[in-house]
């Protein structure tokens, strides 16, 4: 009897401790939110506000990518496709039919999740590099299809009609403040989704699949369905980010929302900050996105590629020195026992 009690205690203790460490993440999120929300009061420069919006947006998008790649271990290099689906769904519905981008965002996200299930059904038989290459090729096919479709404006894309500033149309020409809060909301939602997944049975399964799919299967984990679920959630949030971006720049064309460059930009912050971690994508985005924007404005032109060279260098350093990402530097406990 007594022995049973201690065993029950021993088995309960670890879960409680882990839950405590997890709950400590929520105040950090609250702090990040507070700082970000107050930042525009002191930072009124429009250019810097643009950098802030993009940083938040890429933090959210990289988090979405991280859900599939970091937690479930399925490295996708084709997330630009889902981004494009979201961006085009919102633009097409708003410019063509005057439907509010809020609905467009939802439609795009659901379409994108459905598309991820279809593609996952085809691709999840592939392992490792083959899967990554397949996602890349499929995204390129998507880009070509949109490029050649008159319905979506082909190479010219879709311009959002000019109108008065309003929340219902997600259009604000006079101030960037609403976009800061929208981007922040996007980031918080993807973060909270990841947080919830991390503590759930699904989160456990995904990490097991990442470590060793065959061993996971032998323990009763439904590997295929788990991967499908991770892909759908990841695509859903990526498309939501795409719809936001389209509303923000009020214009989409194939290259500006679906090029391979985006697939890279979603992956790199997570890799730099710490793949498969809650804060990795945000930390990575906080470093990478300002670098991109600064080099762009100093060197001029968006096609110079200098930022990508810097990225490449940073990633190489991280891969050599700290493969777990920068976050493992501040949490040595996470790297070792």
């Amino acid at each position: 009897m007594n022995e049973t009690m201690t065993m029950a205690a021993a088995s309960a203790a670890p879960t409680q401790r882990a839950a405590g460490a997890r709950r400590a993440q929520l105040p950090i999120l609250a702090l990040v939110c507070a700082v970000t929300a107050l930042l525009p009061l002191v930072m009124q420069d429009v250019y810097l506000q643009n950098v802030l919006i993009l940083t938040l947006m890429y933090a959210a998008l990289s988090q979405s990518w991280n859900i599939l790649a970091g937690y479930c271990g399925q490295i996708s290099l084709g997330h630009a496709l889902y981004f494009g689906v979201g961006a085009y769904a919102a633009s097409f519905l708003f410019a063509g039919y005057g439907i509010t981008p809020w609905l467009g965002l939802l439609v795009g996200a659901v379409l994108s999740a459905g598309l991820a299930l279809v593609l996952g059904y085809v691709c999840f038989g592939l392992k490792g590099h083959y899967f990554a290459i397949a996602t890349m090729v499929i995204a390129e096919i998507g880009l070509l299809l949109v490029h050649n479709s008159e319905l979506f404006g082909a190479a010219l894309g879709i311009h959002w009609p000019l109108g008065a500033d309003s929340w219902s149309s997600m259009q604000f020409a006079r101030t960037k403040l609403p976009y800061i809060y929208l981007a922040l909301a996007l980031f918080v939602l993807t973060w909270l989704a990841t947080y919830a997944i991390e503590g759930s049975r699904w989160g456990f399964w995904w990490r097991a699949i990442k470590d060793d799919p065959e061993a996971a299967e032998s323990l009763g984990v439904e590997v295929f369905r788990s991967k499908m679920a991770a892909a759908a959630v990841s695509a859903f949030f990526t498309a939501a980010g795409g719809a936001f971006y389209a509303a923000y720049v009020a214009y989409v064309d194939p290259e500006s929302v679906m090029s391979f460059r985006f697939s890279l930009l979603f992956a790199l912050p997570a890799v730099l900050g710490g793949i498969g971690t809650l804060w990795g994508p945000a930390v990575g985005a906080l470093i990478l996105i300002p670098i991109t924007e600064l080099t762009r404005s100093y060197v001029g032109g968006s096609g110079s590629g200098l930022d990508l060279i810097i990225y490449g260098g940073l990633i190489m350093i991280v891969a050599l020195v700290k493969p777990e990402g920068l976050l493992s530097l501040v949490r040595p406990g996470g790297a070792k026992a």
């Binding site: 088995s11 670890p14 879960t15 456990f204 990490r207 097991a208 470590d211 060793d212 065959e214 061993a215 996971a216 032998s218």
Partner: peptide
């Protein structure tokens, strides 16, 4: 053995 090396014994 094929354990999940990154997860704790209890996990």
């Amino acid at each position: 053995r094929r354990l999940f090396p990154g997860l704790s014994v209890s996990d």
